[in-house]
Measured scan of single mutants.
Amino acid sequence: MSGNGNAAATAEENSPKMRVIRVGTRKSQLARIQTDSVVATLKASYPGLQFEIIAMSTTGDKILDTALSKIGEKSLFTKELEHALEKNEVDLVVHSLKDLPTVLPPGFTIGAICKRENPHDAVVFHPKFVGKTLETLPEKSVVGTSSLRRAAQLQRKFPHLEFRSIRGNLNTRLRKLDEQQEFSAIILATAGLQRMGWHNRVGQILHPEECMYAVGQGALGVEVRAKDQDILDLVGVLHDPETLLRCIAERAFLRHLEGGCSVPVAVHTAMKDGQLYLTGGVWSLDGSDSIQETMQATIHVPAQHEDGPEDDPQLVGITARNIPRGPQLAAQNLGISLANLLLSKGAKNILDVARQLNDAH
């Protein structure tokens, strides 16, 4: 009898209710805020589980004197976190989706994509230029951005401005803007500013005609071990179906173009009346040469937790077992079709030249 009692006690200790789920994140304040929001949602869904947040620095956090596009290494903000995932030191990792490459290392998958916040870019102005827009900034004003995508589009749109690289986390960039006289304004992701509670610093939100956004911008991705079915089931509740389908289309477009950090590629997606609209573009580094096109596809946005595919093969690095396969494939095909259209119009040449120029500098 006593033996059975011990077995029952052991089973209770090993039951999922007692389990601590370890969540990996970057150390920056924004990353911690984003991770806290994901953990809060998981806690609400699984009140019996405990969650421990483990923060670590990544290569991208450490190399702050070089433009991201020049470092010449993929997975700048993800490699150390993936290493911890691989060694079973954490069970899942919360990322900004735009930091996750469209091809993940073997053994990993994006197990959830959370509801997207505003994906557009924002302009934050130096205190002396508050009330201005990019259009009304004085001639030769210097605007800071760490992104080739932003610089290429904005140089084309605002030729009277000069664009220079600015690195560091959000706090560091804002301090550089406010305390030094080098920059009249800087460009940042609206979602990051909003998550930090800095709505009052948003001086201008850039519309798609001015600057399309990065693939996955404004959404959070939760990376897990691809074979860890328990954790895949656990994080599945975080999937937002519309965000998922938009981001599958965007990531398929980028992957098929073979774009990345070192080339200016941008997108804009919208879901309306059962249609998914995808606009994508590529630019030369100075913005003088560009190709942009829009395509659409009829896609039914499923309700969360309709029964999805059981075999769960990944699409552009994403596993969404609780979302039907048909809409996911339709979104992926839309991204591939748009990429093929741009490639047929000469996108590869623009991107190759951009890559060579970026590598040469």
Rank of each mutant, 00 (worst) to 15 (best):
L42N: 00
G48F: 07
L49V: 12
Q50W: 00
I53G: 05
M56A: 12
T58M: 12
G60T: 07
D61S: 03
D61K: 06
K62T: 01
L64T: 11
A67F: 00
I71V: 09
G72E: 13
G72L: 07
G72W: 05
S75K: 15
E80L: 06
A84L: 06
E86Q: 11
N88F: 12
E89L: 10
V90F: 05
V94S: 01
H95L: 09
S96Y: 05
L97Q: 00
K98N: 06
P101D: 01
T102K: 02
V103L: 08
G107D: 12
T109E: 02
A112T: 09
A112W: 01
I113D: 04
R116W: 04
P119C: 11
P119E: 06
P119A: 12
H120Q: 08
H120I: 06
V123P: 06
V124L: 09
F125C: 01
H126S: 14
H126M: 08
P127L: 14
K128S: 12
K128F: 07
V130I: 13
K132A: 11
T136F: 08
P138R: 09
E139S: 09
K140L: 11
R150L: 00
A151K: 08
A152G: 09
A152F: 04
Q155A: 14
R156K: 13
P159N: 14
H160A: 05
L161D: 00
L170S: 06
R173T: 01
L174C: 12
L174Q: 06
L174N: 05
L174S: 06
D178Y: 13
E179G: 08
Q180C: 15
I187T: 05
L188E: 02
T190E: 03
A191K: 05
L193A: 00
L193I: 05
R195H: 11
R201C: 07
V202F: 01
Q204E: 05
Q204Y: 08
L206N: 03
E210R: 13
C211V: 13
M212R: 03
V215I: 03
G216Y: 06
A219N: 00
L220Q: 01
G221W: 03
G221M: 00
K227L: 15
K227V: 02
D228G: 12
Q229E: 13
G236R: 13
V237E: 05
L238A: 01
H239Q: 08
P241Y: 01
L244F: 02
L244V: 09
L245Y: 14
A249V: 07
E250D: 05
A252V: 15
A252L: 03
V265T: 05
A266S: 01
H268Q: 14
T269Y: 01
G274S: 03
L276M: 15
L276F: 04
L278W: 04
T279S: 09
T279G: 10
G280R: 02
V282F: 09
W283I: 06
L285Q: 07
G287V: 15
S290R: 06
I291T: 09
Q292G: 08
Q292C: 12
Q292P: 07
A297Y: 04
I299R: 08
P302A: 12
A303T: 12
Q304W: 06
H305S: 06
H305P: 02
D307Q: 04
D307R: 06
D312K: 02
Q314T: 10
Q314S: 05
L315D: 04
L315V: 03
V316I: 10
N322D: 15
N322P: 09
I323Q: 15
P324D: 15
L329T: 15
L329E: 02
S337C: 13
L338P: 10
L341M: 10
L342C: 05
L342I: 07
L343V: 15
G346P: 00
G346V: 08
K348W: 13
I350H: 15
I350K: 00
V353M: 15
